[in-house]
Design a protein around this nucleic acid. Structure first.
Length: 218
DNA sequence: AACTCGGGGCA
DNA sequence: TGCCCAGAGTT
């Protein structure tokens, strides 16, 4: 496990590589953000961003999503994967918003998680981006990067990764670090072919050094 | 813990 | 072609 000083070094490198890393969904209102994040499960941002402009033009409130037949909504989001379930979830979630939250998106993680199609990660993203609540959403990138760099233990569950990050990272940097780690994982420390050769963190990365040794032997 | 949903992107 | 993606729900 890395110590505080080593973790600080990681954060500085993240900032150096991706100073402007930001969630592309930030500018939207809480309801649009919620829908966009629910849609983005197992789909790339680019794909979601292609669909949302026209989608949000047509649907502006929970009522709007309930005003059309399920088939119509499914058709409107078809180019994103998993569209059947996602369309159902969005209608169910719209119903809950009207029913229990006065038509507004709730701000706490617990309330958000009670909505259809909203799990821990989505709840964390919405709470932190839309309502400035302290939260770190652990997705596949954050998990992989944290484990390779030994910011957490390799065997940690997703929940344990989240706890460790909240304990190790300064709260005021959670949001920025979160986005930078995602960029770092997506474009540099990739799942398949991490670019260890040009990595500024190789000297303190167990996984990277292991990979370089393996390459050496070939 | 393992499986399913799923179209699009990329090698 | 085959594999992966900023996941959630069910068993």
């Amino acid at each position: 496990m890395l110590n505080k000083k080593q973790i600080r070094e990681c954060l500085d490198v993240f900032e150096d590589m991706f100073p402007d890393a930001e969630c592309e969904l930030t500018h939207k209102n809480p309801f649009e953000l919620l829908v966009a994040v629910v849609l983005s499960a197992q789909a790339t941002d680019a794909l979601v961003n292609k669909v949302t402009p026209q989608l949000f033009k047509k649907y502006k409130s929970p009522e709007d999503y309930l005003a059309v037949p399920l088939e119509e909504l499914q058709h409107d989001i078809k180019s994103i994967g998993l569209y059947r379930n996602k369309a159902k979830n969005i209608q169910k979630l719209s119903h809950t918003l009207i029913d229990k939250f006065n038509g507004k998106v709730p701000s706490t993680k617990q309330e958000l998680e009670s909505l259809a199609g909203v799990g821990r990660k989505t709840a964390n993203v919405v709470a932190s981006v839309a309502f400035d609540e302290p939260a770190i959403a652990v997705d596949t990138h954050v998990e992989r990067v944290s484990k390779r760099l030994a910011i957490c233990r390799y065997k940690d569950s997703v929940l344990e990764v989240e706890k460790t990050l909240m304990r190790q990272l300064p709260k005021e940097e959670w949001s920025d670090t979160h986005h930078r780690m995602i960029f770092f994982g997506r474009y540099h420390c990739k799942a398949q072919r991490p670019n260890c050769e040009e990595c500024q963190l190789l000297h303190l990365c167990r996984e990277g050094q292991k990979r370089m040794r393996k390459k050496e032997r070939k």
